Amino acid sequence: MQNPITYLTEHPCSTQSLSESGIAEIRAHYLNVVLPIWRHAGFNAAMGLPFEAISSEDHMPLPPKRYRAMACARQLFVFSEIGDLTHAATLFASLRRYFYDGQNGGWFYSVDENGAPLERQKDLYTHAFVVFACAHYARISGTKAAFDLVDETAKLIEARFATGDGLLNAEVSEDFSATQTGPLQNPLMHLAEAWLAAREATGDSTYDVRLAALLRSVARTFVDEATGCIAELPIGSMDNRIEPGHQFEWFFLCMGSDNPAFVSAGLDRRLARAFDFAERHGVDERSGAVYAALDESGSVIDSTQRIWAQTEYLRALATRGVAADVLGAQIERYRRRFLHARGWVESRSEDGAVSRADMPSTTAYHLATAYASLPR
């Protein structure tokens, strides 16, 4: 079996000589500031669901208009990996209670403030995170129902999202009868992440087969051969773009998992070039912050700096095994620009102004996966 991707107890990188102060500080911030938010102020105990977002000023939840299955799944992953299986069990029960479609199968995108299905379409991104989170919860807790949901959802994805040419649609109708959005990079990337997690949890080599087929399709359809980058839309689409954060994320999935399917698909060589392209064109020299999007030539087309892209850059740097002083300097720039005593800054503009002031429940997933990849 390939080397597993692990999150809160081990790391796949090789850098060992880094001074630990910066890493210890951001990990302590995660444990002592971020996680308590989602156990208490950010958690709707009456419904058993995390609020979508809270205020960064006083941690008051924003008025709930919906609750997303993906957000619940990400929190399930976070609390499973930290070992809080009591809270994780609550989240797992809520995921099944509110979001499972007992009539058509699969998972609703969201429910309203009272827990009734709201956005009823079936999207691949949500289903990928259900597999990912339930796989982690199953591996750590041994819960049979979680293993069963991993298997059931994986088979449903193959049967109901398939395009017929090896790819998977991003969104279909409630009853799976109509395609609403064709293949997109981001849900396919998270499905690769989900297949890796499911393989690790179950030991079932079927997930290796699924991953290999997925990666061949991505390499064939989304790779910009000039740069090695994986574009957001199929190559040749109008208004396509390259997100540096996703290049770093793909780089970690490839190099961190050491799964031979990436090599077979030729993605290891391409993603090494994609890392260089994204770092050269997609990281602000002054602040060290990662931009949101580039065009195929490397010009910045969206200079927003979102925290998730910063964490993916840290994770990719650590996985690449850069010099300790390089990684340490980037951690410090990240800490100063995006973390504060009450939590974090979700996004900034290029000039440093806060462009999103609230703190969404989904971000804890990005922090957990990045920090776990840093040296200990």
Rank of each mutant, 00 (worst) to 15 (best):
E243K: 06
H246P: 07
F248I: 05
F248L: 01
E249W: 01
W250H: 06
C254S: 03
M255F: 10
M255P: 00
M255G: 00
S257N: 12
S257V: 13
N259Y: 03
N259C: 15
N259D: 15
P260R: 10
A261M: 06
F262K: 11
V263H: 12
S264P: 01
S264F: 02
S264W: 00
A265Y: 02
G266C: 07
G266R: 03
G266P: 03
L267K: 06
D268N: 07
A272V: 12
R273A: 08
R273N: 07
F275T: 07
F275R: 00
F275D: 12
D276E: 14
F277K: 03
A278Q: 10
A278V: 11
R280W: 00
R280I: 06
H281N: 14
D284M: 01
S287I: 01
G288Q: 04
G288W: 02
G288H: 05
V290S: 14
L294I: 11
D295Q: 06
D295Y: 04
G298L: 09
G298V: 13
D302M: 06
T304M: 12
T304P: 01
T304Y: 01
T304Q: 09
Q305T: 09
R306M: 09
R306H: 14
W308A: 10
R315L: 14
R315A: 15
A318C: 03
T319I: 00
R320T: 06
G321H: 04
G321Q: 10
G321R: 01
A323T: 03
A323G: 09
A323L: 09
A324F: 02
A324Y: 00
D325E: 15
G328Q: 11
G328W: 02
A329C: 09
E332N: 13
Y334S: 05
Y334F: 15
Y334I: 09
R336Q: 11
R336A: 11
R336I: 08
R337K: 13
